[in-house]
Amino acid sequence: MDVKQTVADCIEQVAKAQNKVIPAISDQLVLLESGLDSLCFAIVVATLEDELGVDPFATSEDVHFPVTFLDFVRLYERAL
């Protein structure tokens, strides 16, 4: 399973459902500048928990909050 693709697809789907326009997803995309708000991220994390079976924010007490898309993907890759 390609975690990066799964995460990217999820972000795009949530953005669409929430009527947010986001730029093309790249490794260096800064999440907070992507046009997604906290609520969108909360939905992305919940959706990914259902799809991948992990919530890296809840399972570790020492999460470093991700700045870029790549940071975000790595959180999931490490948790899986």
Partner: peptide, 12 residues
């Protein structure tokens, strides 16, 4: 509510 690490909770 569903617990969320980002917003505390989200509505489902």
């Amino acid at each position: 509510a569903r617990k969320s690490p980002i917003t505390g909770a989200i509505v489902v």
